[in-house]
Design a protein around this nucleic acid. Structure first.
Lengths: 157, 157
DNA sequence: TCACTGATGCTACAATGTTGCATCAGCATC
DNA sequence: GATGCTGATGCAACATTGTAGCATCAGTGA
């Protein structure tokens, strides 16, 4: 993986993950460190399953339920963010503060989720009286560059 | 249910539902008619489960799988629209054309989804090169008027 | 090193959605 | 109105995603 694959904001490192977790008052465990590092190293939000696969690839033993709980804990602490991708499963990414809340693009051909760092998800729409806005989620659906290209080529044949 | 509870656009009626289904070349069946009428009569998107409950209340026999297939078919034909509410289950509403595509509000206290007819979901954001936009989904999360009020009252005590 | 307690790793279960297949019923035709 | 074709239905089984309960393990402070 190259630097350009990574999220632009933080330079992920083992000590960063440990510090991040410890700062929240949680225990610094193998699973949590690995989950944070996996999310930090990914350019796009990962599903629970993808995080699990990454841990397995790194030979880090883990349990499905523990992973759910670790991800939930990260979201609860504000370290992580949960995204409804439009598919059934949640996806998770590292939170970079409210001001960095961005829209996501969901490719309906390959299922990939891409962060649109330039497209803010925060809006101040006219809500009915009495409604309180907590956060906005903007998900764009379509075809990513790779899939769109493949589709054009296929239809040309 | 009063008129103000209903979606503003079409005046739902049995013949409407039949015509809508027949116009797509599909067979006009008991289940499909009931599903279309249920969605038309609702002011907000319904989950599969809620549609099933409505059919049960109307004494219309139906199967869970048939309901899934009927809803899928409606979406496929452009009669219905599928919404990822942020919870695990899909929700469905009657589609009123692309120009009526609107944002939705998800109340995190009562789980209700409200259509924000005045807030368009369509945007033309700056996408990376090669990306093709199909549709945008904007979901706002927070507390609806009822829940927000209850919360304020509870915290005053 | 020890004790406390939060985190983990099991099993079991719930909710939501899908697949395969035999049967039924809508619709066109006669 | 009777008939046949085929799409729609109903049922059982299964897949995926997420949650609950509980015994055990391990991080952390003393």
């Amino acid at each position: 993986m190259t630097a350009s694959d990574k999220h632009p904001d933080p330079a992920p490192s083992r000590s960063d993950a440990r510090a991040l977790i410890a700062a929240c008052g949680g225990r610094v465990t193998r699973t949590r460190i690995a989950v944070v590092e996996t999310l930090q190293a990914s350019a796009h939000p990962l599903s629970h399953d993808e995080v699990g696969a990454a841990l397995a690839a790194a030979d880090i033993p883990h349990d499905r339920v523990t992973l759910y709980r670790a991800l939930d804990w990260l979201v609860e602490q504000g370290i992580g963010r949960r995204i409804a991708s439009g598919e059934r499963a949640w996806r998770f990414e590292i939170a970079h503060g409210e001001e960095h809340r961005h829209a996501h693009f969901h490719c309906e051909r390959c299922g990939q989720i891409v962060c649109l760092d330039d497209v803010p998800a925060t809006t101040t729409p006219p809500l009915p009286a009495g409604f309180e806005l907590d956060r906005a989620e903007l998900v764009l659906h379509g075809a990513c560059a790779d899939c769109g290209r493949r589709h054009v080529q296929a239809s040309k044949r």
